[in-house]
Simulated assay, not measured.
Amino acid sequence: MRKTTAWSIRALGAVASAVTLVAALLPATPAAAANVAFKAATLNIYNGLSQADFVHDLNLIASTADVVGLNEVGNRKAFLESWAANNGWWLYAPGGTNQAGEALIAKKSMFDVLDKGSVFVCDTNGPGEVPPARYNNWVRYRHKATGRAVTHINAHAVAGIESAGRPEDLPRTRCAEAQFQNLKDLAVAKQAEGQVIVSGDLNVDFSADRSYGYAKFPWQVFEANELPNLRSNYNLHGEKGTGTHGNRHIDYVYFWKRLPDYQLMWMTGYDIVGGTKSDHNGVVATFSIQN
C-alpha cells in the first residue's frame, strides 16, 4: 500500500510538471499579454471660428488624446505648424487649404513618423467649384512603447449627401461614395503594414446608415461585412450622447478589426467630447495595443 501511494505521488508530480512545461510553451492569450493604452480622437473645427475659439477647440481635443484627426483646419495651417512645434506634436497638413484641411497630429513623446501621404479623391461639384476637392490623408507612426506600426487615415466627406440614410442624387454624393471606397482601399492596403485607425467627419449618420444600408455608404462599405474589416466606435460601444453634430452621429473613429487570433490592437471604449466652440463635438477612442 505504501509503495502504491508513493508511486502515485511521483506520477502526479510528473504529470503536473509536464502540464506546466506545455503551458509555458503555449503563446500568451491577448488577455494575458502586456498591453499599452493610447487615445485617438477626431474633431471637425469649423473653419469660420475666431482665432480664440479655434485655439480653444484645438487645445481641448489635444488634451484628450495622443493622436488626432482634424477637419476644416486648412486655413490655419501656418498656426498649426507653430503650435505643433511649440507643444511637442507631429503635424501632417500637406498642400494648400483644401488638402491641408484634413490634418493629422500626434504626440512626439508617444509616436515616431515612419511614412505619410495624401490621396486626391475627387472634386465634389466639379473642378474649382464649391464645395472643394476631397483628399484622404494618412500617416504611419511607430508607437514607441510597443514598437508597433499604426497608420492613421483621416478624411472629411462633403455634407448634404444623405437623408435618413438615403443617398441624395447629386454629384457631391458620387464624390463621397468614391471617397468612402478609397478610405476602405487605403485601410486594406495599410493593414498589411500594421495597425490601422480611420477617423473623420463622414457626414452620414451612423444609425440611419445602418438602418437603410445603402451599398456605397460607410456602414456597408466599412462595417457590414465579415472580419477582417473596419469597425467604428458606435458599432462596438453604442451611440452616446445626443450626437456629434446636432442629433446626428456623423464623426467616427474606426480601427481595423482582425480575426481574434491575429488581433494586436483593440478599441476598448470611447467618449464624446463636448464643450467645443465648433458646431461639432469630438470623439475620443481608447485603444489597447499589445506590447
Rank of each mutant, 00 (worst) to 15 (best):
A93E: 08
I272H: 09
F79S: 01
A85D: 14
W83K: 11
Y214V: 05
N136R: 02
D205E: 08
E162K: 01
E226K: 05
P132S: 11
A159M: 12
I272L: 08
A103F: 05
T42Y: 04
T173G: 08
S118H: 02
A33H: 03
R210M: 09
A41M: 02
A208V: 03
F54L: 10
R140I: 15
T5V: 14
A103M: 11
E177S: 06
V121P: 09
P167I: 07
E129N: 12
V55Y: 00
T244E: 04
P94C: 13
E177G: 02
D53I: 11
P132N: 14
A149N: 12
L43S: 08
F54H: 02
E239Y: 09
Q181E: 14
Y262W: 09
D201K: 03
N125K: 03
G95C: 07
N182K: 00
G69H: 09
K277A: 15
A133R: 02
A37P: 01
K77H: 04
C122D: 15
L264S: 08
D201Y: 04
K257M: 00
L25M: 08
R174S: 13
D271R: 14
C122I: 11
L186P: 00
F111T: 02
N98M: 13
A224V: 06
Y270P: 12
P94I: 03
G275W: 04
Q263H: 08
L58R: 03
G275L: 05
F222P: 14
S17R: 12
W83D: 04
Y92Q: 07
T268R: 14
N154L: 04
L183S: 06
L21H: 02
N47M: 10
V253S: 08
S207V: 12
S232C: 09
Y141W: 10
N137C: 11
S211E: 10
Y92G: 06
G95R: 01
L170I: 14
V273K: 01
D123M: 01
V283T: 07
G238K: 11
F222M: 09
Q99I: 03
V22S: 07
H249T: 01
D279G: 07
Q290F: 08
G147Q: 10
Y141E: 00
S163C: 13
L12M: 07
A192H: 14
L230K: 07
N125G: 00
S211Q: 12
E102P: 13
N229G: 14
L49W: 01
G238C: 08
E81W: 09
N291K: 15
R10P: 10
A224W: 06
A93Q: 04
L202E: 07
P30Y: 03
D209L: 06
Q220C: 01
M265Y: 06
A16Y: 05
V196S: 10
R231L: 05
L236Y: 09
S199C: 11
L227K: 15
L49K: 10
G194N: 02
S232W: 04
I61E: 01
E102N: 07
G194M: 09
A34P: 04
A189Q: 15
P30M: 06
D123T: 01
A65F: 02
A187L: 08
P260F: 08
T124W: 04
M267E: 05
A103R: 00
L70R: 00
K184M: 12
T64N: 09
A103Q: 00
N137K: 00
N75T: 12
R172M: 10
S207N: 15
S199V: 03
S8I: 13
V188D: 14
E129A: 11
L43K: 02
L259S: 15
G128S: 14
A208F: 06
L43V: 13
N182L: 10
F120R: 00
A24N: 07
